[in-house]
Design a protein around this nucleic acid. Structure first.
Length: 574
RNA sequence: CGGGGCGUGGCUCAGCCUGGUAGAGCGUUCGGUUCGGGACCGAAAGGUCGGAGGUUCAAAUCCUCUCGCCCCGACCA
């Protein structure tokens, strides 16, 4: 490809609406342009990188026994009504009507469509297992799209669905997909972690998320320093240990008192005002569930994990109560809730059980209670692990320390079970002629997000540094002086030779000054720069610069192909 | 959906408070000098100041409405 002919509009300055690095660089490098909030045009350079990722995905999935299909992006409402998600999915589901006033939606995911296909075609156990995937545009009407291509409304996703005879079958498929995902992300040059995750809206019994570690990530991952335990903080288990107690067992129980705390609502304020460590304050959070209102107690330095609370309470819906409900229930403005005298079901985190003489809200405006003790002053109905892990907690699997990192979720695998085969009646006849539910798994990869995540992990002040496997071009030839015929001819020759031998090369044949070419080459991040300038050329030589290491070598022009070939190999992970 | 901010040439932004000829840098076009890290000189094109309404002799500027975009929040009392 020739730079002079390519639609590659690079920018010196980043657009003012770009926040994260990948977004800025993708716009500056001429990969994307915004059409509307959360909706982007993909330009040639951007598409090339994305196609590279797509092809790696295809190779690994096909190798693992999956088959590619292509399903409609517009889906009839009936299917979603049948699965029950037409109502459940909420406003993220973009609904449209056709000219006959029939309801459709733009697919945010394809469980319904593909399960409908499978249920119509699969009758016998002989036709299973089946593992189908597609690479498709999805639309999710996000509350707040942000970070460029990282969290947008329209995006490209690889989604795959597996159909097995039984639990054993799906577990094997799941493992295969898990391994394939590891290969895919490794080949994309990403530093990632496969972490245990909550199943969320898609539902199902267990799942792993593939997280790319990056500060700009919107998810938090807890990772053990000593063993290989990794989990989304939503899911990560807390280990109870001696350190949690932090109190002398011999400390005597003191009589409870009410103290005035004018306008001190938050744990920070109360801790400061009463000169008490946050560990000795107990927060009382009021939640509404389908089975009534409950009060959840966690230590002042901890946060409630709603997913865990939900599980402990065995309920489906859980929402933090609003101001009004809090006032009704505690007869005090929010900020002063406490367990003493509350006529609610009270759930406590394990760590609360070990504290004595702690501080809580008094259920009175501008007042807290001190020296509160469980059993003496109030009773707990239920206790368990209901808090979010935090950095420095102990690992639940070993004695290591957990670290919490930010991560970008690029892939997710679920063991779905029979959730959809049940609602959509996807069944088969087993060898005894008995009808059984097909057992499903589902597997997603955010393709565009993977590209963005790679940039988050691979860049410097000058621009993108593509890992070789997903670089839009493997090499770029910088013809430094278009007025010098030797330079031009040599650049052309090298470009032709490399291209003919199957290497993906961009030649910067624009009539621009060298500085501009260097800057653009760095910006668009091509791994190998081949720099053709007069001085070196007089000795029949040219320079090669490795974008990643900034290493420069001078090689004879005649040796170029061999050198480049060697470097490509060197820069491609096995 | 709540709070905040911003819409002025292709891009980044100034001008708005205090109404009176629409600006800069980058980019683009033409001519010349330059040519290994975003050059320089000269000339030029390009904007109904997001849109609608209002106030005024006069509106980018003040008021009202509207659309778009961005940020923060929408679980922690």
């Amino acid at each position: 490809m020739r730079f002079s002919k390519m639609f590659l509009p690079t920018l010196k300055e980043a657009p003012s609406d770009a926040e994260v690095i990948s977004h800025k660089l993708m716009v500056r490098a001429g990969m994307i342009r915004k059409l509307a909030a959360g909706i982007y045009d993909l330009l040639p350079l951007g598409l090339m990188a994305q196609r590279k990722v797509e092809n790696i995905i295809r190779e690994e999935l096909n190798r693992a026994g999956a088959q590619e299909v292509f399903l409609p992006s517009i889906q009839p409402a009936e299917l979603w009504q049948e699965s029950g998600r037409w109502n459940l999915y909420g406003r993220e589901l973009l609904r449209v009507k056709d000219r006959h006033d029939r309801d459709f939606c733009y697919g945010p995911t394809h469980e319904e469509v593909i399960t409908d296909l499978v249920r119509r075609e699969v009758r016998s156990y002989r036709q299973l297992p089946l593992n189908l995937y597609q690479i498709q545009t999805k639309f999710r009407d996000e509350i707040r799209p942000r970070f460029g291509v990282m969290r947008c409304r329209e995006f490209t996703m690889k989604d795959g669905y597996s159909y097995d005879l039984d639990e054993k079958g799906v577990e094997e498929t799941y493992r295969k997909m898990y391994d394939a995902y590891c290969n895919i992300f490794r080949r994309c040059g990403l530093k990632f972690r496969a972490v245990e995750a909550e199943t969320g809206q898609i539902g199902g019994s267990f799942s792993h998320e593939f997280m790319v570690l990056a500060d700009s990530g919107e998810d938090s991952v807890a990772t053990c320093e000593s063993c290989d335990y990794s989990a989304n903080v939503e899911k990560a288990e807390v280990r109870q240990d001696a350190r949690c107690k932090m109190q002398d067992a011999r400390e005597e129980l003191k009589p409870m008192e009410v103290v005035s705390t004018p306008d001190k609502k938050s744990v920070d304020e109360v801790s400061e005002f009463l000169k008490v460590e946050k560990e000795r304050i107990v927060k009382t959070l009021i939640f509404e569930t389908e089975n009534g209102i409950v009060a959840a107690l966690v230590r002042g330095d901890h946060d409630v994990n709603e997913a865990k609370l939900k599980k402990l309470l065995k309920c489906d819906v859980i929402n933090l109560a609003g101001e009004k409900v809090v006032e009704d229930v505690t007869s005090a403005p929010s900020g002063f809730a406490g367990p003493v005298g509350l006529n609610l079901k009270i759930v406590a985190d394990n760590s609360v059980m070990g504290i004595k003489n702690f501080v809580t809200g008094a259920n009175l405006k501008d007042a807290h209670r001190v020296n509160v003790n469980i059993n003496t002053d109030f009773k707990i109905d239920l206790s368990g692990d209901i808090r979010m892990v935090k950095d420095g907690d102990l690992c639940s699997r070993c004695n290591g320390t957990l670290r919490v990192y930010k991560g970008i979720e690029v892939g997710h695998v679920f063991k779905l079970g029979t959730k959809y085969s049940e609602s959509l009646k996807a069944t088969y006849l087993d060898e005894n002629g008995k009808e059984k539910l097909i057992v499903m798994g589902c597997y997603g990869i955010g393709v565009g997000r993977t590209v963005a995540a790679s940039i988050e992990q691979n860049h410097d002040d000058n621009g993108i540094i593509w890992p070789m496997p997903i670089a839009p071009f493997q090499a770029i030839v910088l013809s430094l002086n278009m007025k010098n015929t030797d330079v031009v001819h040599t650049s052309e020759n090298i470009y032709q030779t490399l291209t003919d031998s199957g290497i993906e090369v961009l030649v910067d044949d624009r009539d621009e000054r060298p500085g501009i070419k260097f800057k653009d080459a760095d910006l668009i991040g091509i791994p190998i720069q081949i720099i053709i300038g007069e001085k070196n050329l007089k000795e029949g030589k040219a320079e090669i610069k490795i974008r990643k290491s900034n290493k420069r070598i001078i090689v004879p022009v005649s040796d170029m192909e061999k050198q480049v070939r060697g470097l490509i190999k060197e820069l491609t992970p096995a």
